[in-house]
């Protein structure tokens, strides 16, 4: 069971998608376990549904959306700091990410 703000899109996914903002320090239920969130999670962002090892594929929509660049803890924010594309690099206004393979 999950906090209703954190939505599982596909049974095979290892991330949940935020549909209602969760504040840092809030206690939420993730996969039946209580967890204190370390950072703010904004709508549209992802958190790890379970521990994900470096190099593992990230699944959303039941399909791979990239690979972990470091070990990701259960409940951690999943974004550019810990995963990368397997195709083509993403970018922000400040910097360009690396690309996987």
């Amino acid at each position: 069971m999950n906090d209703r703000r954190l939505v599982l899109v596909n049974e095979n996914d290892n991330v949940l998608v935020c549909c209602g903002q969760v504040g840092a320090g809030e206690t939420v239920v993730l996969e039946g376990e209580s967890l204190i969130m370390g950072v703010d999670i904004h709508v549209g962002h992802k958190v790890a549904r379970r521990a994900i090892g470096k190099g593992e594929k990230i699944f959303r929509y039941g399909a791979p959306i990239g690979s972990a660049t470091v070990d990701i803890a259960f409940g951690e924010h999943v974004h550019m700091h810990n995963i990368k594309s397997d195709y083509i690099p993403s970018h922000t206004r400040e910097k360009k990410m690396e690309v996987g393979q």
Binding site: I65, G66, M80, D86, H91
Partner: peptide, 13 residues
């Protein structure tokens, strides 16, 4: 950049 601010991380996502 706005895609990333909105939670999208990679092209394939």
């Amino acid at each position: 950049p706005g895609n990333a601010e909105g939670g999208l991380t990679t092209q394939e996502e």
